[in-house]
């Protein structure tokens, strides 16, 4: 059952990822990305990360991507024009595949292939555990991220406001 679920959601993630890269229209790309995120949320659940799966749905799929869709609709972005250096760019493709191959070989070499992911083997990802870790071990980084968010809000307002002159 675990394997079946992994296959289904991994397939969804990869297909949506490919679709993100090859779709011409930004809205299609945005929806593909939402598909990837939803599939990843399901995979997090399989890995025992309850809270992180919910956060993935709420923060990524429910808020950040709504912002993207909003901006695409607001700017009425049309389909993409063919780039001038399109052909030159595809020269990078072999390098990418090579990179992927190296990473895959590294993973296959270094990780024990016998270790299986079994649902329920790791239950340390509940909201309780995350909260305890956030407010003890990781308290300083947590507070710093709140300042980061504040700066981001200020930056967004300054960048997007109407010029007063």
């Amino acid at each position: 059952m675990d394997a079946l679920l992994f296959m289904i959601f991994a397939a969804i993630a990869v297909v949506c990822g490919i679709s993100l890269v090859i779709q011409k229209h930004p809205i299609s790309s945005a929806l593909s990305l939402i598909g990837v995120m939803a599939a990843l949320a399901a995979l997090y659940l399989l890995l025992g990360g309850e809270f992180i799966a919910a956060a993935q749905l709420i923060v990524y799929a429910g808020a950040i991507m709504v912002l993207f869709v909003f901006v695409i609709m607001l700017l009425n972005a049309g389909t993409e024009k063919r780039g001038r250096r399109m052909l030159a760019n595809y020269a990078d493709l072999p390098i990418l595949l090579l990179f992927l191959g190296i990473v895959a070989a590294f993973i296959a070499n270094r990780m024990p292939p016998t270790e299986q992911v079994i649902f329920g083997n790791f239950k340390g990802g509940t909201a309780l555990d995350i909260g305890r870790a956030l407010f003890t071990t990781y308290l300083l980084p947590f507070e710093v991220t709140s300042i980061l968010i504040l700066i981001a809000i200020l930056g967004a307002i300054v960048l997007a406001r109407k010029e007063i002159d």
Binding site: F6, L20, M86, L100, M111, E115
Partner: peptide
């Protein structure tokens, strides 16, 4: 069940797709 390496492979594939989109899209 599936090995842990499959999850890491999936992550690598998605990362490569992201890099590809970053390089090829205009």
């Amino acid at each position: 069940s599936v090995p842990i390496t499959w999850y890491l492979m999936l992550s690598a594939i998605l990362f490569t797709l992201g890099v590809a989109g970053f390089l090829f899209r205009r």
